[in-house]
Amino acid sequence: MTTPPPLIEARDLVKSYGAGQAPALRGAILHLAPGEILAVTGPSGSGKSTLLHCLSGIVTPDSGSVRYGSERLDQATETRRSELRRTEFGVVFQFGQLVGELTALDNVALPLLLAGTSRKKAHESAGEWLERFGVRGQAALRPGEMSGGQGQRVALARAMVTRPKALFADEPTGALDSLAGEQVMTALVHAARESGTAVLLITHDAQVAAYADREATVRDGAVAGETGAEVIR
């Protein structure tokens, strides 16, 4: 059986946040296969989040390459990387990614509205995704009026509304209690499997990592080991 080519592949990534600072990434190598759920774990300050930021095109590495299909993300323009986040990638953080001034419905519709989709169609799609994540009732609320768990489900709905090829989730349950965290993870995995979306999941939590097909451990800015041999090339 042949292995499908990776959806995203990072090679020898090095990234520093300023002169004189220790590099956050020192030669990290990682790939994400289409449709797989990959958990990236490691201690605080090991470079997990920086790795996610490089792979999702939020930041560009100082050296090394990030390939998305045949495209070099590390060489793509800011506009192209923004376009990818709007159309083919979804991003979820621990908090703060929703626009406080917009309702849940507008927040979920945001990537579509930014892409020029008509308001009616964007709201229809947004409503469907809110329904899937069980927060349809909160459509008219703004982020400040929702619980943390509801807010994260709205954030997931927004990340999934474009049916992205890859979803990048940085500690998506980090600010939630265990029950809400479990609900969010169940919803995330279910939606990703259904849409065939690959997920790169950053987490400290072994219970969250257990939802993944594969687990990579990052230490001192490099991938130190991987488990889940059935999906490793």
């Binding site: 939020i58 800011e78 506009t79 923004s82 376009e83 990818l84 986040r85 709007r86 159309t87 991003v91 953080f93 703060g96 990614q97 929703l98 626009v99 406080g100 001034e101 945001l110 990537p111 930014l114 892409a115 927004r158």
Partner: peptide, 16 residues
């Protein structure tokens, strides 16, 4: 800055 950053995260370009 936070509002604009959230828009950027959702895919808006800096110009947008």
């Amino acid at each position: 800055e936070r509002r604009l950053a959230a828009l950027r995260l959702a895919g808006a370009t800096p110009r947008q």
